[in-house]
């Protein structure tokens, strides 16, 4: 009897959650699909975004993402390699770095926005620009990216390291040709997490890359990313809800596409490395 009551409660709660989640998803997809067309993607916004498209917003989003990844990827991989291969004991300086990374990962995104504004926009004189926004995002995604890559590299069996050593490879060569390809799933996971966070981020970009919805001409121009566009349309523009749902669907599809792209790029790159 009690078993039956309990399992009914469990199934009801699961059904409730599934229903709520499916409600959100279908709303976004159906409302968004009604707005999306080729013209929506390639034209400039008109009438504060109520009409027209999102072309400059898409371009700004990609700019910010490319800048963030270009800064975070090499730095992050380098630090992860040092932590796992050159300081495997996690003592002294390496232990402090580990704590630092966890502390950095805990900072709320809006606080990264405050920092980005004070450091990149004001102190470095970049103003409200795509570059300032991208660099702020790079700081934000670095800790999680490093941690994921590091744990992936640590999980590679020591047999591989000893094999590389026995073949007379330098540590650098072993990392490039053996260990990184072996840690591919973790690197991919870190990349996907970083892309997801960077593309979805709004709060950190409000006062670093700014609000301007013109087509950016260089990374030093201010530009409005998709997430900020959605925020602005729904909060500050009456009658902007339709376009906001359209942009929301584009944003979700973009995240899914970028994840797929990251997966195939990383796969290709490492396949070449191994077969060389």
């Amino acid at each position: 009897m009690i078993d039956r009551v309990f399992s009914t409660v469990v199934f009801a709660a699961a059904a409730l959650v599934v229903a709520a989640l499916v409600w959100v998803l279908t709303d976004v997809v159906s409302e968004g699909a009604a707005r999306i067309s080729w013209a929506f993607l390639v034209t400039e916004p008109r009438d504060a975004g109520r009409a027209g498209g999102i072309a400059p917003v898409l371009v700004s989003t990609l700019w910010v993402l490319v800048i963030a990844l270009a800064a975070a990827l090499p730095l992050g991989l380098g630090v992860a390699i040092w932590l796992s291969e050159f300081a495997p004991k996690q003592r002294g300086f390496a232990a402090y770095t580990g704590i630092t990374l966890d502390v950095l990962a805990g900072i709320p995104s809006i606080v990264y926005g405050l920092f980005g504004n004070a450091f990149f926009s004001v102190y470095m004189g970049l103003g409200y620009s795509l570059l300032a926004g991208g660099l702020t995002l790079a700081c934000m995604i670095l800790p999680v990216f490093i941690r994921t890559c590091e744990s992936g590299l640590r999980q590679v069996s020591d047999d591989w390291r000893q094999g590389a050593w026995a073949l007379g490879m330098t540590r650098a060569a072993a990392v490039c040709h053996v260990l990184l390809p072996a840690a591919r799933p973790a690197i991919l996971a870190g990349l996907v997490l970083g892309i997801g966070r960077a593309t979805a981020e709004t709060a950190a970009l409000l006062f670093t890359s700014g609000y301007v919805d013109r087509m950016p001409e260089s990374p030093l121009d201010s530009g409005r990313v998709l997430a900020v566009h959605i925020f602005d349309l729904s909060m500050n523009v009456t009658g902007g809800d339709g376009a906001a749902y359209g942009s929301a669907l584009v944003l979700i599809v973009l995240i899914v596409l970028l994840n797929g792209l990251a997966q195939s790029l990383v796969d290709n790159w490492f396949k070449r490395r191994i077969s060389q």
Partner: peptide, 12 residues
């Protein structure tokens, strides 16, 4: 759902 941007939840 965990991967959906917070701004989309806000819009909804």
């Amino acid at each position: 759902l965990a991967g959906i941007p917070s701004v989309v939840f806000g819009l909804w």
